[in-house]
Every structure is written in structure tokens, then in C-alpha cells.
Design a protein around this nucleic acid. Structure first.
Lengths: 68, 68
DNA sequence: TTAAAAAGAGGATTATAAACCGTGGCTTTA
DNA sequence: TAAAGCCACGGTTTATAATCCTCTTTTTAA
């Protein structure tokens, strides 16, 4: 359950860092609140599929690259 | 946006039929409400990642097989 | 060691996913 | 001619995703 969100968040964070993006720049590009992106990366929330897609678009990757 | 949910729903339905499962049996196995599974398949709701995983487990496939 | 940048943390509110109750319609089979 | 299987669909309620805001802590660089 929470494990899934944690792993997904870690993958998102890794991809973001790979891109050299700061959390707030990332949030801005995804048109999401920075504190919310923080929660996602920490695995504190269980995101919807459409948000996942928005993040993949900003990260320039596919959902399958982020899903555990 | 809604397109994503529609395609995802269609993929879920196709997989379910492939397995020869009725909608309400599928819902029961996934421990989800029958009417809610109908809405998912019709693309009327934007599911969370953890629900997606529950569905993949019942369908015996991976999330990447369902995501457009 | 200090200032600035980056990330953590949490409260309050809003939007919506998900649960729970149902009805009706269509099709198949007993 | 039901009786059962299968699905669309509606209304209401509850849980939680998502927004917006502020303040604190950690990290980085000068």
C-alpha cells in the first residue's frame, strides 16, 4: 500500500534529480503545488493516474519508467 | 485528460474479458464496488495508482499492460 | 559561519475518488 | 415467461487526493 507510494515517489525523485531539476521548478513545470510534489516524493500520498502522466511528461519519460 | 481514463478503462475491460470475468465477479475479487468498476471501465473516473495495482493483480498483468 | 536555496512539515480548505445504496434494460437459458 | 447473468447508470455519503498557505529545517555555496 504505502510501500507502492514510497517506491513511486523515490523513482520520481530520482528522475527529477537526473534532470537536474529542483523540486519547486519541477512543481512549477507540472503546474502543481511544491508542497504537494514533496509529499508525492516522500510517498505520503497516493496519486491519481492523470497526475502520474503529468509528471512523466515533465520528466520526459514513460509511466512504466516510474512504476515499481 | 478524460481520454486517458477512457483508454485505460477500455484496456482494463479488454483484459477482464480476456480472463472471462464478469464485471461483478471482477469487482468482488478486487474488493471494489461493482458500480465503481463499471465507472472505471467506462472511463468516468480517474483512478489512483494503488487501485490500478489492485486491478493488475486480479488481472494477472502489469500496470504497463494497461496504461496507454 | 552565515546567507540563500532547497526540501520538509503541517493546518485548513476544496475537489473528487471511492464506497454504498439502489433501479432498469438487455440477453441468454431453463 | 420467468429467472439469472451481465452491465449502464443515478443519488448520496465518506475518504482522501489536491490546493493553498505559512513556517521550520536541512543543504549548499560564498
Amino acid at each position: 500500500m504505502k510501500d507502492l507510494a514510497k517506491k513511486l515517489g523515490a523513482n520520481i525523485r530520482a528522475k527529477r534529480k537526473e534532470k537536474g531539476l529542483a523540486q519547486d521548478k519541477f512543481a512549477e513545470l507540472a503546474d502543481l503545488d511544491r508542497s504537494y510534489v514533496g509529499r508525492i516524493e516522500r510517498g505520503e500520498t497516493n496519486i491519481t493516474v492523470d497526475k502520474l502522466y503529468i509528471l512523466t511528461q515533465v520528466l520526459g519519460c514513460h509511466a512504466r519508467d516510474l512504476l515499481p
